[in-house]
Simulated scan of single mutants.
Amino acid sequence: MKNGPALHGFLSGDRRNRINSAWDYFVNLVAIVILSHGKCGLSKCITRYLVAMATADLMVIVCDVILHWIADLYWWNTFLYYTPVCRFIHFLAPTATDSSVWLTVAFTFDRFVAICCQKLKTKYCTERTSAVVIVTVSTLFCLKNIPWPFVYTPYITANNIPRGCRAKVQFYIALTWRAFSWFEQLLTPLLPFCVILLLNALTVRHILVASRARRKLRGGSNSENDKDPEMRNRRKSIILLFAISGSFILFWMTTVVYFFFYRITNAFSRRSLFSPFPNFEHAGTMLQLLSSCTNTAIYTATQSKFREEMLNVLKYPFTLIHKSVELCKLQD
């Protein structure tokens, strides 16, 4: 399950996951800084989506990895372990994950409209529409995850202070909670699987048909088509689309497979605090969280101007040190 009670025991003390979390945090933070400057040669519409996706992915790292799993392992004696704070974190974590996934869907739909629906493109693919979509997606998934804090009850109560979070027994037996658990897992990531695959299939089909027609108009010569910048751009679009859908499916597939096993078998109804296959579950969790750094990287690393800006960001501290040294020499 995605951020639910079935994930207790997440890779306890595994150093590799802390390194992955730090890398994910760095990648998304750099992407936000670079894209926010608007110097990557992208339209404002695309830039807004990419910044929103990178921000959502960064929130996954902060809320899910740092405040949820790492805090549970290493900061259990801090205020983060108080039940009201713990419940709030259990609300933030799935909200960040849902927003990250569905912003990817929204951006995929925006690119589908831009490529395949020329009449709708001028009205839909605008900066204002992207802002409305981003706010709507974020708001809807904030509302959708409101029930999560009510799943948990305190582990213990010491000095009249409730501490820790554990799932209520009713979560595993009550029909309402079982329905909610199915709904939230079907909504993320199963439905995005289908939507992204469908949109990408339609987009690729449109590109192939248009490319075939363009090839005929240009005489059908492969050498001429290779030199055609329009054909090269379309070929890159196909590769990009397959990379996005492929990475999304690969990183989430383990979690989805575990979900079906967990629900179809009797594991859910007889489950306590422990997973019947903890290693499989932990691997799915690690891959799911690792996916928070791939979307932005795939969409933007292929852009030459983005790479130039990234190099400038990486060189900036050294440039600043060099200027400071030169300034000190001049003052001396």
Score class of each variant (00 low, 15 high):
2 K>E: 10
3 N>K: 06
5 P>C: 03
6 A>Q: 15
9 G>F: 00
10 F>R: 09
15 R>C: 01
16 R>A: 09
18 R>L: 11
25 Y>Q: 00
27 V>Q: 05
34 I>F: 01
42 L>I: 13
45 C>M: 08
46 I>F: 11
47 T>D: 10
48 R>P: 10
51 V>F: 05
52 A>G: 08
55 T>W: 11
55 T>Q: 02
55 T>Y: 07
59 M>E: 13
61 I>K: 03
64 D>E: 00
65 V>W: 04
67 L>N: 03
68 H>E: 09
69 W>A: 01
74 Y>H: 15
75 W>L: 15
75 W>D: 10
76 W>F: 12
80 L>Q: 13
86 C>H: 11
87 R>I: 09
87 R>N: 04
89 I>P: 00
90 H>R: 14
90 H>N: 15
90 H>W: 06
91 F>T: 01
94 P>Q: 12
95 T>D: 07
99 S>C: 13
100 S>K: 01
101 V>N: 01
102 W>L: 11
102 W>V: 02
102 W>T: 02
104 T>M: 02
104 T>C: 01
106 A>H: 08
108 T>H: 08
109 F>C: 11
111 R>Q: 14
114 A>S: 09
114 A>V: 03
116 C>R: 14
117 C>I: 02
118 Q>K: 15
123 K>E: 03
126 T>C: 08
137 V>F: 09
143 L>W: 03
143 L>T: 02
145 N>V: 03
145 N>R: 04
147 P>I: 09
147 P>G: 02
151 V>R: 00
154 P>Q: 07
157 T>R: 00
163 R>K: 14
171 F>C: 06
174 A>L: 12
176 T>F: 06
180 F>C: 03
186 L>K: 05
187 L>Q: 14
188 T>K: 09
189 P>F: 13
190 L>E: 08
196 I>S: 08
204 V>H: 01
210 A>G: 08
211 S>L: 04
214 R>M: 12
215 R>V: 03
215 R>Y: 06
217 L>W: 02
217 L>P: 05
221 S>M: 03
228 D>M: 12
229 P>R: 10
229 P>V: 11
239 I>M: 05
250 L>E: 04
254 T>W: 03
254 T>S: 12
255 T>M: 13
259 F>P: 00
261 F>T: 10
266 N>A: 07
272 S>Q: 00
273 L>Y: 14
274 F>E: 14
275 S>N: 08
277 F>M: 10
277 F>P: 05
281 E>A: 10
281 E>F: 10
281 E>W: 01
284 G>W: 08
287 L>W: 13
287 L>V: 07
290 L>R: 12
294 T>A: 12
296 T>P: 04
297 A>F: 08
298 I>W: 06
299 Y>A: 13
300 T>H: 04
300 T>P: 07
301 A>D: 07
303 Q>H: 12
303 Q>K: 02
303 Q>F: 07
308 E>L: 11
309 E>V: 01
309 E>Q: 15
310 M>T: 11
311 L>R: 10
313 V>L: 06
321 I>H: 11
322 H>N: 03
324 S>N: 12
331 Q>A: 13
